[in-house]
Design a protein around this nucleic acid. Structure first.
Lengths: 355, 355
DNA sequence: ATGAAAGCGCTAACAA
DNA sequence: TTGTTAGCGCTTTCAT
C-alpha cells in the first residue's frame, strides 16, 4: 500500500502538498495539483481514512440508525441515504437497532466510537434519554420520519399523508371508515403518526371513530391480511365501506383478505394505503406517496450542510416535498347509499373513542 | 472526550496498560484490569476507532456490498449480518451498489479506504475484474448467495432450493410447469441460480422446457403479477398447471394474477416460490425457505474466523443449512388428468429450449 | 505484570 | 504557493 510520502516523492513535492492537492485545497497551484493527482493514480494511492480521520477529526462517515431494514419504508429511505452519501464520497455505517436487544449497545458503545461525523435517525422509536445520548455526541443529527425534541428533522409528513388518504375516502362519500395497522414490529412511533393523520381527517370531517374499526396490526402484508379477515367477517351492518391501511403493505393485505371473502374492491370495499411503494402499485392501490428515497437524500443534504457549516445549525432547511395522493383502482364511491351518513353511532366527542 | 491517558491517570497505571486491559490482554493482572475498567467506566471512556485502527491495522469494521436493500432476500441477509456483527462488536459499513451507477466508485474508492477489515459480498453480480479488485485488497472476503471464483462462499443453495420447489410440483404430478422471474432489477446472477435449479429439476424428471413458459420478470410482486397475466391469459391448451416463481414475491404476484383471472389456486394452478419470506406466508405460498438471516450470520462467523486466524483461510467451513421446503396451500395435484404427460411438445434435448 | 518510547499515515499550524 | 514540524489517540515492541 503506497502512502502519502510515496506520492510526494513521485510528484516531487512534500506530503503536505499532496494532502492539500487531494483535498482540492485552493492554495495549491493547478499544475502541482495535477502532478500530484497523476502520481497518486499511478501508484494507486488511496488515503487511509483512519489516519485522515485521526488527524483531522473528520471521518467522512455518517451513521444511520434505523429499527429495521426489511420494511419498505425503511429500506427506501436507506437507499436514498446511501445513494446521496456515495455521491458525496461519504461512507455509511449502519446501525440496525432491530428488536431492541442491541439497541442499547449501539447507543452506548458504537455511536461513541467517534467513527461518524454525524447521525441520521430514521424514525426511531427512541426514548428521550436515548435521544439525549445521541445529542451528547455533539455531532450533527438529523431525523427523518419523526421529530425528536432537539433534533433537526426532515419531516416525513406521514401524518399529512395519512390524512390525505383518509380525506380522499371521505370526499368519495365514505363515512364508515376503518383503520388497520399501527402496531409496529419495531416501535409504534412510526405508524402512530399515520394513525394520527387518520384521526385528524376523521375529526375534521366530523366523523366519530368507532373502536371496533380501529384494528391494530403488524405493519406488514400479513398483518393487514389477518386484521382484515377479522374486520371483514363481521356482520354486514358492522362492516366498514372503506379501510385506511397504515402502510401500502398493510393495505395490500386488506385487499387480499377482501378478495378472499369475495368482496369486490372497490365496489364493496375501498382501500387506501400510505407509502407509495411498488407493492401498492402492483395492487392498484390508491395511496399517499411519501417519496421515501427523496427523504433520505434530503436528510443527507441537510446533514452535510450542517457539517460544512461546522455544526452551525442556522442553515436553511430544505423544502419538503408534500406527500402526493396517487389515485388508482382500489377506491371508489360507496355503493350502498343507505350507508352514507349512517351515523346512528355518533355522538361527536373530544375522546376519539366515543361510545 | 476523555482519552486513554485520563483513564491511565485515574487508574494509576500507564497508557499501555490501559490499552492492554481493555483488549483483555492476558498479560495484565486481574486486579489492574478491573481497576482500569472501573476508571474507564467512571470517565465514560470509549476508545477512538480511528486511532486504534491506525495504530493496529485492525478496524473492527466489515464492509457489506450488496446490490439493493429493498428486496426481501437482501434485507434479510443484511439483518442477519448486522445482528451478528453488533454481537461481536464490529461496525458495518454498507456499500449499496444500486443500479450500477455508483458501483465503480465503490469498488475503486470506497473499498480501498482501508476502513474495513473484511468484506461480505451479498450476491453480487460482479464481473470477474470487480472481484479481482476486491481480492486485491488482500483482506478476507466471503460471499453469500453466489460463488465468485477465489472467494470463500457461504453457499446459499438457491439452486437447490429452486430445484426442491420444482421437484415438489413434479412429485404432485405436474408436468406443465412454467418459470416466472429471473430478470433481476439489479443483476441476473441471483435469480439465474434459481432458474438453473428449476432447469435441473425439470431435466432430471425428463420434462422438456417450453420456451413460452419461461417468462422473464422483475423479481418483485409486481413483476410476477405482470408476467403471470400474460402467461395465464393464453388459451387454455397453453396454460401451465403450475408455476415456479423465482422468489416469494414473484410467486405472490402470480397468485394475485391467477385470482384476478378467476383461476383457483391450487385447483387450477399450483404456485411455488423460493425464499421463505413473510409475504409468502401471508399468501399461503408453498416455498423453499432459504433462511436468509442465518446465511448472513454464517457469513459473519466465517469472516471473523478467518480474521482471527489472521487471514489463514484454512479454517473449517461452517455447515450450511439446507433449504427447507415449506408446504402450504398454494400447491396441489393437477386437476385435469388429461394434461398429465401431455408431452406432444417434447423432443428430449440438450438445448433446454427444444422446439 | 508493567512502563517508556516509537510510530501508524495523515492534517494543520506556522514559517518561508 | 509550498515545506517543516508537531501532533491526532492509540498500539506495540522492547525494556524492566
Amino acid at each position: 500500500m503506497p502512502g502519502i510520502k510515496d506520492v510526494a516523492r513521485l510528484a516531487g513535492v512534500s506530503a503536505a502538498t499532496v494532502s492539500r492537492a487531494l483535498c482540492d485545497d485552493a492554495r495549491v497551484s493547478v499544475s502541482t495539483r495535477e502532478r500530484v493527482r497523476a502520481a497518486a493514480k499511478e501508484l494507486g494511492y488511496v488515503k487511509s481514512f483512519s489516519a485522515a480521520g485521526l488527524a483531522s477529526g473528520r471521518n467522512r462517515n455518517i451513521g444511520v440508525l434505523l429499527p429495521t431494514v426489511s420494511r419498505w419504508y425503511f429500506s427506501a429511505v436507506l437507499e436514498g441515504i446511501a445513494e446521496a452519501l456515495v455521491a458525496k464520497g461519504y461512507d455509511l455505517t449502519l446501525y440496525n437497532s432491530g428488536r431492541g436487544r442491541h439497541q442499547e449497545t449501539l447507543l452506548d458503545d458504537f455511536l461513541l466510537r467517534q467513527r461518524v461525523d454525524g447521525v441520521i435517525i430514521v424514525n426511531s422509536c427512541l426514548r428521550r434519554e436515548d435521544i439525549g445520548k445521541i445529542l451528547a455526541l455533539r455531532k450533527p443529527v438529523v431525523s427523518v420520519g419523526g421529530s425528536p425534541p432537539g433534533v433537526a428533522a426532515v419531516r416525513s409528513d406521514e401524518l399529512e399523508a395519512s390524512a390525505a388518504a383518509t380525506s380522499h375516502l371521505i370526499s368519495l362519500g365514505h363515512r364508515r371508515i376503518a383503520h388497520v395497522g399501527g402496531t409496529g414490529g419495531p416501535p409504534r412511533s412510526r405508524s402512530s403518526g399515520r394513525f394520527r393523520g387518520f384521526q385528524a381527517a376523521m375529526e375534521q370531517a366530523g366523523i366519530p371513530l368507532r373502536r371496533q374499526w380501529i384494528v391494530p396490526a403488524e405493519s406488514t402484508l400479513g398483518g393487514g391480511y389477518e386484521a382484515a379477515r377479522m374486520l371483514l367477517t363481521a356482520p354486514k351492518m358492522d362492516r366498514p365501506s372503506a379501510v385506511v391501511g397504515s402502510s401500502d403493505d398493510v393495505a395490500a393485505g386488506v385487499i387480499l383478505a377482501a378478495r378472499e371473502l369475495a368482496l369486490s374492491v372497490p365496489d364493496d370495499l375501498s382501500v387506501v394505503g400510505v407509502d407509495g411503494s411498488e407493492v401498492g402499485e402492483a395492487f392498484g392501490l390508491t395511496t399517499a406517496n411519501l417519496f421515501a428515497q427523496r427523504q433520505g437524500q434530503r436528510a443527507v443534504r441537510q446533514l452535510l450542510d450542517e457539517l460544512a457549516r461546522h455544526g452551525d445549525r442556522s442553515g436553511l432547511f430544505y423544502p419538503e416535498s408534500r406527500p402526493e395522493l396517487v389515485i388508482r383502482s382500489s377506491t371508489g364511491i360507496p355503493t350502498d347509499p343507505s350507508r352514507l351518513n349512517a351515523s346512528g353511532d355518533a355522538p361527536a366527542a373530544a375522546d376519539p373513542f366515543a361510545p
